[in-house]
Design a protein around this nucleic acid. Structure first.
Length: 562
RNA sequence: GCGCCCGUAGCUCAGUUGGAUAGAGCGUCGGACUUCGAAUCCGAAGGUCGAAGGUUCGAUUCCUUCCGGGCGUACCA
């Protein structure tokens, strides 16, 4: 699987901000200043403020007991010469503004082309193992739009982390145990009886969706009416397993069509049967965080900052799902993952403190688990909210969404929002504006570039050897801007990985396309000047490459034709 | 009541450990295809960053209070 490959960075010097940080460390040492944990470089809004800037002097000013500008001046004086940098300026209240050397940038374009698919990848993660769990929808019905959002975010995060050298493992937790499966079984039974002409009412809390009518028909078609004679326990167990298996298979199919594959589908039922849950309970008890009250068994999660203690075993003797959940996370850790990332829905956000409390109670490090809350998607149609409720049996499925909007547009739209920001998605608008969707703006840049090279082939013109192209011919301001933007990808990709924010890639790509299209519109790539033509071909090849690499991090295709 | 998320242009959203003159897409208005793809480009209009205080060299960003929206607050999952 591509996402789990480990990459060695073949082009370290191409990560400009890494090089700048190294230089700054030398400057700090030279100036006798203490280096902060991490230096962050930002890309200033104003061109006059350089290509990169840092506020490190202002942060150090207080500790050094000197004015910020003086600290900045000191750092500037000790800034070692590096090939990437033309000049360093002290500006404003104490910024260090770095201006890149144009000649170095032009040459770097050649290295970007040389790096190809591995451009902007790094080995920052050093092969450490990360497990990311997402979607994990209940196996009681089809996937819905919110699941499509989680799938897009989770899959993209996997790609982004893998590109930084982490070994990422995608997992889907199947809640195939507990009350809801019983309910599902009873719902299915009622549907089967209805097919047989019996007067069977759906149970009060049943899943009313049409898909169970379909499943009932399927079950009967495979000779499944005998089961109705079986005793309660066996009947419901078998119907439950049947329904879960079919629904899960359907979920896997829809996710596959969306381009999302999981490395493992982890069964809660198997976890319970393995006895791991009981073992976790015992460990908590040994550590003194378990007590009994009101006939139930409680976890003292308040010892780790939770609002209140939580029930582990109900008074009827059944463990709560919380126990399974803890056991599942312990299972992950024992499989050797060094970092866990969970994507949860907003209806679970209250559960984050207790889950973290449980892991800490068991003695695990605090930062081991990151829980990202993927907010809801409010689906609108013609400006009117579409009511979605599994309980009511009304919803727009993930499959319908993909059919209506398209896989790339759906994924890109989800990835242009922060995961924790609620999202309005008007089907009518997105469908109508398909052609103007930002994803096509980015993809179109790629297709246009592909067609330049197609044009080259049609006219039987030779493809230049990138090593021998005179890249210094790229002297237009627009060309320099484009190259500098291409050089930002390693910084953006690393930032997206650090912050777990795929949308940074999506915005970067829109900005890159926003530089490319005007350039393309104004200047011809293929012209009479052979050397200039070759240089511009190198430039647009670089843009195409970066767009392709960037879209790949989002799991969106980069078409040659549209 | 308590907790979490959110409130930025008409709409949907960005805004990088607090930083320099707050951005994009859509929508609206006006222009550009005999030349590598017009799913594009050029230009215009559009803002009390929900409100009020506070912290400091500096606040859309941090703190407090209030207003508004969403979600939690189960011996359901």
């Amino acid at each position: 699987m591509a996402a789990t490959r480990v990459f060695r960075d073949p082009n370290m010097g191409l990560n400009v901000t890494d090089s700048l940080s190294d230089a700054l460390k030398a400057a700090l040492a030279g100036a006798g200043l203490e280096a902060p944990d991490e230096v962050l470089w930002e890309v200033p809004r104003e061109e006059a403020h350089g290509d990169y800037a840092t506020n490190v002097a202002m942060l150090l000013a207080k500790g050094a007991r000197r004015p910020p500008r003086e600290v900045a001046q000191l750092l500037r004086q000790h800034f070692p010469p590096v090939p990437q940098v033309q000049k360093v300026e002290v500006a404003g209240p104490g910024f260090l503004n770095v201006f890149l050397a144009p000649d170095w940038c032009s040459t770097a374009l050649g290295e970007i082309l040389e790096a190809g698919e591995s451009y902007a990848r790094s080995d920052r993660g050093r092969g450490s193992r990360v497990q990311i769990e997402f979607v994990s929808a209940n196996p009681t019905g089809p996937l819905v739009v919110a699941n499509a959002r989680a799938a897009a975010v989770g899959d993209s995060l996997t790609r982004i982390l893998a590109a930084q050298g982490y070994r990422v493992f995608r997992e889907y937790y199947v809640n195939d145990a507990g009350n809801q499966v019983q309910t599902l079984a009873r719902s299915l039974e009622a549907r089967i009886r209805q097919q047989l002409g019996e007067q069977a009412e759906l149970p009060e809390d049943a899943y009313p969706g049409e898909y169970l009518v379909e499943l009932a028909r399927e079950h009967l078609a495979t000779g499944g009416s005998k089961i109705l004679a079986a005793p309660d326990g066996e009947r419901l167990d078998r119907l439950g397993r049947f329904a879960v298996e079919r629904i899960t298979a359907d979920q896997r199919r829809v996710l596959g069509a969306y381009g999302v594959e999981f490395d493992r589908w982890f069964s809660e039922r198997a976890l319970r049967e393995s006895g791991e849950a009981a073992r976790v309970l015992e460990r908590l008890r040994e550590r003194g965080y378990v007590y009994e009250a009101e006939g139930a068994v409680w976890f003292r999660s308040t010892a780790f900052g939770d609002d209140k203690d939580r029930v582990l075993v109900k008074s009827d003797g059944e463990p709560t799902y919380f126990v399974s959940d803890i056991a599942y996370h312990v299972n992950k850790i024992e499989r050797g993952f060094e970092r866990l990332i969970d994507l949860w829905g907003p209806d679970h956000h209250g559960h984050v403190p207790r889950m973290k409390a449980a892991l800490r109670a068991l003695g695990y490090a605090e930062g081991l688990l990151d829980v990202l809350i993927v907010q809801l998607v409010s689906l609108l149609r013609q400006g009117q909210p579409v009511r979605m409720s599994k309980r009511m049996g009304e919803f727009v499925t993930m499959e319908e969404l993909i059919e209506e909007v398209g896989r790339d547009a759906a994924r890109f739209t989800f990835l242009t929002r922060r995961h924790d920001s609620p999202l309005d998605f008007d089907l009518e608008v997105v469908t109508r504006q398909t052609a103007e969707n930002p994803v096509y703006y980015v993809q179109y840049a790629h297709a246009r570039i592909a067609s330049i090279f197609q044009h080259l082939r049609e006219r039987k013109l030779p493809l230049p050897d990138w090593q021998r192209v005179d890249l210094l011919r790229l002297s237009l301001p627009e060309e320099q801007s484009l190259i500098k933007r291409l050089l930002q990808l390693p910084h953006v990709a690393a930032g997206a990985a650090r912050a777990l924010e795929p949308h940074r890639i999506a915005y970067y790509l829109q900005e890159l396309a926003g530089l490319f299209h005007p350039y393309y519109n104004r200047h011809r790539v293929i012209g009479d000047d052979r050397a200039l033509t070759e240089a511009r071909l190198a430039l647009v090849a670089g843009v195409g490459l970066v767009v392709r690499n960037g879209l790949d991090l989002l799991g969106v295709s980069a078409p040659e034709k549209m």
